[in-house]
Design a protein around this nucleic acid. Structure first.
Lengths: 202, 202, 202, 202
DNA sequence: TATGAATGAGGATTCATTCAT
DNA sequence: AATGAATGAATCCTCATTCAT
């Protein structure tokens, strides 16, 4: 299984602040997403309000990530589950991720920005990586993926995917364009990972 | 031709500051690379020195990028030029880029960090993208690359490459490890881009 | 008579908060004893609870002082009353005060910290001073204490006593050590105040 | 030797800030001596100015202590040195310390407030204690001081002295009053520490 | 009687930049 | 060409208190 959402609904103000934070991060980037900017965006009169609801910037950030994963999972998981076979699921993962940009541009951009800046410190980031790796290993065991370093492949593909998504998300393109880009990326990934058909070796 | 160096030698103080800035960015990241940190690292007593020589943070950053590209180009270009054919050059580009981490870890990490944070604003970033795209177009025209959206492919591959490089660079690995990772990535890229041998399968 | 307890039992929540406040002050010091820290220590979910029961920080503080004096008086008064004569009572006052550290370290440390920071503003502090002064005056009238400025002597001895107590209290020493220190201080005070035996020497 | 000053003259702004800080601490107390209050008192437009010249609050505080010790030493040391014998020097120490209040009320009050709040963390505090203790030990060896726990005695006397000084300093009394109080305290200390004349034992 | 969200001022510190020397 | 002091806005965070429920 590829991707799993786990987040309980935030109550009241917390949710409001998280939403505002996600939008601000998506808009001005992680580095410039200060408490005052977020407070202003949320219609709060002071930054103290945020500090009241969250233990610190890290806490707020974790809440944002959790919320985004909730949104992301709810959209992507059904499409991934509907696909059969490792290759089809890989395609579904990538295409639904790109398509997600059309539905929730802000959370997508925000998440990618957070991932970039938090590096490998975030548990969520590593979880995402681990899931993709596990998918690759299972596919390799099943013989549908060729032998390759699963970690290197996972990092490269996920980062490439993220980069395209964030580039795409800045323009908020039409659905057709998104679908096309999704297919392009999926094709890239499938070709990069699929086992050679029989006898062939490129 | 893939990659091109364009930087005239910096004079005295400027060069000293740029070098310090690159090392600081590589060490603490773009976001925390403040003038005072750079000045301290460069052995300067005040940040005024930096402001005196550079119009602003953007200017310093541009100088850093130029310097890094100079270093990068000097290392990678010969290896790329030595390769024959579009596919071999693509391999050479990727493998030499990964190998570069072993030779100049700081500039590599710094550049990637800058690219991440400056987004698509930087001219240098776009130039890098444009070069790879152009290489893809030429290869497609020659029939050695399959048809694909060159921009999407360029973004995905470069970002994936960067992500692997930065992950690798944090550990300062042994040369053998680097060479292996380089080959993994090159294989990924070649499979993702190469035209089908005959009869096609996609 | 040296020392007098005057505090009616606090009701329910107030008492709980006061106890928590005393422990927090003893632990982190008066300056860092914020409402939120006290609320957390008391198992309360919000600081509003404290503000509801006390008019302000000063009010809470006064309640703490009263409670501490209650504890202190209950322990020291019997020992003081058991002593006969002004000099013996002075010894009993000091020795029982030092011994008190072994029984109730938190209230002792808290009180001293409060005294230090509230300066001479607190009524309780002045009351303590006045009692000791009165004891000195009575002893002087009885001829067992030499002539001296009772106020200066009272301030110096009480403060010196407090300082030794707080220093001692940080280490949580064994009873024997406490008893020894108590005797040292008592001897100091007696020598400083006692009238010359006969023929004088000044 | 009792007390030793070691401070090189501060340059320009630093000195100005230190002076302002001392006055503010003397006026509103250590706890409320915020950077903004100090900046305002010093006629500075921002607190950033202070942070520019001092590494942090601790650094500023250390500079204040050094400056005060410089002032204190310059006043007290000659008077102490002029006294002959351990007992006379003890008297000189105490009397000159009390007299100092008349000359430099702010530094005296500030120092005591700092000492109270920094507890035993400060090197300066411990140095002061150690010097007095050493003086007691030497006097005991010479037979002019009776046997007692030098540490307990030093803490008690110094703290008592400080308490009287700070109480006195709040009123800024006339010189005669100060001299009288100094003699009272000196007498207290001498009686508490002096060896019994001969055969006597109190 | 009790709650806990909201407030807004104030805390220290870091930042890029300016300017007189 | 170079310096380093000065600036003031912005950073996150903690504080005691208030208020509607």
């Amino acid at each position: 299984m590829l991707m799993r959402a786990r987040t309980f609904t935030e109550s009241g103000r917390r949710a409001q602040i998280v939403t505002a934070a996600i939008e601000v991060i998506a808009e001005v980037g992680y580095a410039k997403a200060s408490f005052s900017r977020i407070a202003k965006h949320a219609g709060l009169s002071s930054t103290g309000m945020i500090s009241y609801h969250f233990a610190g910037k890290d806490d707020l950030l974790a809440a944002c990530v959790a919320e985004i994963e909730q949104i992301t999972g709810a959209y992507m998981q059904p499409q991934i589950d509907a696909a059969e076979g490792h290759i089809a699921q890989l395609r579904a993962y990538i295409e639904s991720n790109v398509a997600l940009v059309g539905e929730h541009p802000a959370p997508v951009r925000a998440l990618i920005d957070i991932v970039k800046n938090s590096g490998s410190q975030s548990a969520a980031v590593n979880a995402r990586l681990a899931m993709v790796e596990e998918h690759f290993r299972a596919g390799q065991a099943a013989g549908v993926f060729r032998p390759f370093d699963t970690r290197t492949m996972a990092i490269a593909l996920i980062s490439g995917l993220d980069a395209v998504v964030v580039t795409t998300a800045t323009a908020v393109p039409e659905p057709n364009e998104l679908a096309r880009i999704g297919r392009e990326l999926a094709e890239l990934a499938v070709r990069a990972t699929a086992a050679d058909p029989e006898g062939g070796s490129a």
